[in-house]
Each structure stands twice: as structure tokens, then as C-alpha cells.
Computed example of a mutant assay.
Amino acid sequence: MTRLNQITHRLKAEQIDALLIFDANNITYLSGFTGHAATALVLAGQAYLLTDYRYFEQAKDQCSSFNVVCRDRVNQSLAALIQALLEKHAVNKLGFEANHISHGVWVDMMQNWPQVSCLPTVRWIEDLRYIKDQGELQSMQLAANIADQALGELLTRIQPGITERELAIELEHQMALLGSEQPSFSTIMLAAERSALPHGVPGDKALQNGDLLLIDFGAVINGYHSDMTRTFVLGEADAKQKEIYQTVYNAQQAAMDAFNHEVSGEMLYQQAQKVLNQSQYAQYQGEGLGHGVGMDLHEFPFIGQGCELTIKKHCVVTIEPGIYIPGWGGVRIEDDVYLTDNGLQSLTQFPRELIEL
């Protein structure tokens, strides 16, 4: 069953006439359209992609399963165009993406479509995106390979005196040279005590011997993200750095060892937390353990306390325990993994053991 057919099947099952889709990645997932300024309307028998002159030809090329409609932005509002289609197909019950709608669009819906019952839907398409097909896994593997290679190249350029910002720029440059469409997100490159900032911004801090260096980054291929963190020491690591690194490593390994086809996100979190709680640094552990990744950097599920969802085959998630001590520094190790029939597979392959630069 195609992705689009799965949505039309759910419409029939829930007795909803149509689904209005706003999220760009959800539209891409269903239609193949990779441009901007688009809205999709899916009915039981057909689907529409609404855009304007800037993307009309692109949409026609990419969306063979959709009727592509070019809106005249000067003379027709989006709400008016949707209303015309709703009337054409006698839509009485309209589902819409509750998590991807602005207040302005909501007001338009309420004012312009009084004859339509608008029903909020949550995660209809995200639930399909949760499990990756082979094409998606291949794209994510290519993105992870690029990140692995770029990091290897970066390590040859790290020396005392270079700044966080210079290294972040160089890492993103290396990924671009290797074919990444863009960075997965703004690279996190933090040295010394600044590595205790889980999502800090690279600055003009110059590296010195003995510094921790935390690098969190990723590449993008065909719209699919990778996400990896490694922590290094410039020069020889001291006893505390080694101890904390090994604790985080052991926590990540405990979660990875717990993967099976019946494990929940909370169970994975508990395995990592057990290791961290047994250390003297338990109070400095990060909240949660990881998240889904794919077309969005952060996708369902979010692995931590209360995540009762079973991690299914081919759901790609990050496993990223960390310890962050203000005024001293932090250590995080993160990999992208998924279950197969033969066990756990890691997309990210860069060595996880502590490397002294």
C-alpha cells in the first residue's frame, strides 16, 4: 500500500472526507514535492497539491499522484481556493494537522468554512514516517557516512589555538564537499568548560591542551538527517575526563545492549540511567536519552521517562547519554541506530572510544 493510500484508507476508516496538510516534510513524504509554499488536500479518491507560480512546474514534475493547482496569489487567498475544492467535493468533515497550523489559518478556517466540521488530527503522517523504508535508510546511511568522513578530516586540523567557530565552519565545509545538502543543524562545537552546555553555540574560545571538545553535528542527503556527537580531549586526558567518558560510554552501551523487538523507549532510558545513577556524577546527567530522526532532526519517538512506545524495526533513533558539569565541562556520545531482524544496526560508524588528539 502506498503512503498516500494509507492516508486515504484511514480517512475512510475514521469517516473523515478529507485531510488538510500543512507541514512541509509531511507534504514531501506523501507527494515527493521538495519545494516551498505548498498545502496538500487529500480526499478518499484524489489528492491536491496547492502552490503558486514559483513552484508550479516543479510540483507537476515531482507529484505524479497529485492534482497540482497553481493559485493566483493576487486574486485568490489560500482559504478561498481550499473552500472551492471543499465545495466541489462536498466535504463535510475536514481533518487538519493540529500541530502544524498557525492561528491565522485557524481563524480563516473558522470564518470561511462554517459549513465544514473541522477536526484536529495528530501525527497521522508522522506515524507512517516513524518506520523507515529501504530508500530512507539508504539516504540516512549516506548522510551518516558523510558525517563520519568529515569528522575524520577535521581531526587532522585540530591544534591548540584554533577556535570553536573556526572548527565548526571547517566541519560544515567538509560535509558540503562530500555531498551534504546542508548541515543537519547548526554545528555544536564546544571546548573546555563550555562543553557543559548541551546545545551551546560555537564561539571564539581558543582550544588549549587538556581541553574537552564536544562536537554534535550531522549531514543531510535527500532531505534525511544524520545526528552524531563525539567528545575528544586535546592532548592527554586526565583521570576525571577518562572516568566520566567511560561512564557515558557504558551508559550508551547498556542502552544499546537492551535493544530488542519488545523494548520500550522508557526501558532503554532506564538502562542508561542505571549506569549514570551508579556514578558519582549522577546529578549531572542529561534529561532523556534520545529521539527519532529522519526528515526532521527531532522526530517521534522521544526516548525517556514515560516513553511507553515499543521501538519497532527500522525506526531510527539516537542514543545520546551525557554528563554536563557546570564550570568543568561535559561529555556526550551519540549514535543513530535502528533494529533489524538480525539485531541493532548503527548508521554512525565513527569510533566511540575516547580519542586523545
Rank of each mutant, 00 (worst) to 15 (best):
G294S: 02
E287Y: 10
G306Y: 05
H314Y: 13
C307H: 05
H291C: 08
Y281L: 03
G290N: 02
M295P: 06
Q273D: 09
K312H: 14
Y284D: 06
G288S: 11
L276F: 02
G304K: 01
G286K: 00
Q273E: 14
S279Y: 00
I311H: 11
T318M: 05
H314Q: 13
T310G: 13
A282Y: 04
K313Q: 15
M295T: 15
H291N: 15
E287N: 11
V316P: 10
M267K: 15
Q270F: 01
Q270D: 13
K313F: 10
G290A: 09
V317G: 13
L309Q: 14
D296F: 15
K313I: 12
Q283T: 07
L297F: 02
P301Y: 01
L297E: 11
Q283I: 01
K312N: 06
G290L: 03
G286H: 08
E308A: 05
Y281M: 02
Q285I: 00
G294Q: 00
S279W: 02
H314M: 09
H298F: 15
G265Y: 05
I303N: 07
Q271P: 02
K312A: 15
E299K: 03
F300L: 07
M295V: 11
V275T: 06
Q280C: 04
V275I: 07
G294V: 09
Q278H: 06
G304N: 00
C307S: 07
Y284P: 00
G265H: 07
Q273W: 08
A282E: 04
C315W: 14
K313L: 14
Q278P: 03
K312Y: 09
E308P: 08
S264R: 14
G288I: 00
Q285D: 08
E299W: 06
I303W: 01
V275Y: 00
K312V: 12
M295L: 14
G290T: 04
Q271N: 02
E266W: 06
G290W: 10
Q283K: 13
F300E: 08
G290Y: 03
T310V: 15
V293M: 00
G294N: 01
G306N: 05
D296G: 12
P301N: 02
V317H: 05
L268I: 14
Q280W: 01
L297T: 09
Q305G: 03
H314F: 12
Q270T: 14
S264T: 15
Y284I: 02
Q280F: 04
S264C: 01
E308H: 14
L297I: 14
Y284S: 01
V317I: 15
